[in-house]
Amino acid sequence: MNLRKSAPRSLRVGGRKAAVWWGERTASRRPPPDFLVIGGQRCGTTSLFRALMAHPQIRRPQLHKGVNYFDLDYDRGEAWYRGHFPVRRPEDDLRVFDSSGYYMFHPQAPARIIHDLPEVKVVAMVRDPVERAYSAYKHELARGFEWEKSFGRALELEDARLKGEVEQMVADPSYQSFNHRHHAYRRRGEYAAQLAPFIDGLGADHVLVVESESFFADPLTDYRRIVDFLDIADFEPESFDRYNARPGTGLDRAVAAELRTRFEPHDAALAEIIGHPPVWRR
Rank of each mutant, 00 (worst) to 15 (best):
L3T: 12
V279R: 12
V166K: 14
R89Y: 13
F178K: 04
Y81R: 08
F85I: 11
G275A: 04
P237A: 01
P61K: 04
P278M: 10
D218C: 01
D98P: 01
R30E: 03
I58N: 02
F229N: 06
L117Q: 06
G189M: 05
D228V: 00
Q108D: 11
Y74A: 10
V207Y: 02
F235R: 04
D92G: 08
E167G: 12
L270Q: 01
V123N: 00
P107K: 10
V227A: 04
E24A: 15
L11V: 14
V37N: 04
F263H: 04
G164F: 09
R42W: 04
F235K: 05
P110Y: 11
A79D: 10
G189R: 07
G77P: 05
R29C: 01
T26W: 06
S174H: 09
S214Q: 08
E119Q: 15
A133P: 01
R260T: 12
G39E: 11
A109D: 12
T46M: 01
P90E: 04
P8R: 00
D93P: 01
Y81S: 04
R42K: 15
F151P: 02
R143Y: 09
Y102V: 14
E140I: 00
T46K: 03
V255K: 07
V279G: 03
D200R: 10
Y69I: 10
P33V: 09
H115A: 15
F229T: 07
F85W: 10
W22K: 06
A133F: 01
R281K: 14
A233F: 02
H182N: 14
R29Y: 07
V67L: 05
D218E: 14
E24K: 15
V255M: 05
E272P: 00
L259Y: 02
S6V: 02
F263G: 04
L94K: 08
M53H: 08
P90V: 11
H182D: 06
Q62W: 05
A269C: 07
L72Q: 10
F49T: 00
